[in-house]
Amino acid sequence: MTEKVKLLSHVEAINWNRIQDEKDVEVWNRLVNNFWLPEKVPLSNDIQSWGTLTAEEKTLTMRVFTGLTLLDTLQGTVGAVSLIPDALTPHEEAVYTNIAFMESVHAKSYSSIFSTLCSTKEIDDAFRWSVENPNLQKKAQIVESYYLGDDPLKKKIASTLLESFLFYSGFYLPMYWSSRAKLTNTADLIRLIIRDEAVHGYYIGYKFQKGLEGLSEERRQELKDWTYELLFELYENEVQYTHDLYDGVGLSEDVKKFLHYNANKALMNLGYEAMFPATVTDVNPAILSALSPNADENHDFFSGSGSSYVIGKAVNTEDEDWDF
């Protein structure tokens, strides 16, 4: 009871007509417009494709998805919720409730994939693996320890690294299948999750940088050093986890490039410089184009020979407010 009274004295009615930070409204609208449910994706069209995978490939895929389920569960029920008490504006609190709910949608969507493609026994075995794999458990424990800690900015760092880095050892696989025209509907669903996580990482990273404003140079340096240390600790564990999963199919080295590439992006979301040099972030172009169909470098004037460059004419510009 005491706690409830305390809570009421703290909560004020949220007024969306008085905004302190426009980013809150922008991100709220973006998240609401991106809303989706797994039921909208025709996963059953992947049943035939699933049948073409070997037993080892099926086990790998299910393990990857239980690993992702664990991270989404952690982010939905602990991570995003733990950010609410430190919010700088009431609208920021509301955005975290949206993020928390979507993480639960993500966690549930893996179960939709499982129930479409696998038997109950296979599903139970994969979930048992997720409980027993030490590297998977370790990554969840490291992040959770900071979610339960009392440093608001370290919570945001851990949260951004989860959203923008830790998922990618798993996201690699559906992109790989998609590049080989396998499990393409499942890949469509995963792309929706990737899009959401990108907005989450961007927003939490932005709020972290807002939190840095007005801090002493000493404290800023401490947080920066701490970020690189935590990333390195998580990275070493990710490498082990990647070997556990992908050695059997010979993809570990390819996955690691994807890890480096995404670690750099996670750092940038926090406003820090990339850590891994371009020599180890050269992600397999097939994976990159599964992620974004227009990521092909040859579109760019500076990257290609210039003379081979063709201006795209197929872009629909109807709904922008042009008056020419």
Binding site: L288, S292, N294
Partner: peptide, 20 residues
């Protein structure tokens, strides 16, 4: 951000196409 799929750098692509 390539994580936005087809929307990766979409604004720049639209302007390039629109303004030739």
């Amino acid at each position: 951000n390539t994580n936005f799929g087809k929307a990766y750098c979409l604004a720049a692509m639209k302007i390039a196409a629109k303004c030739d």
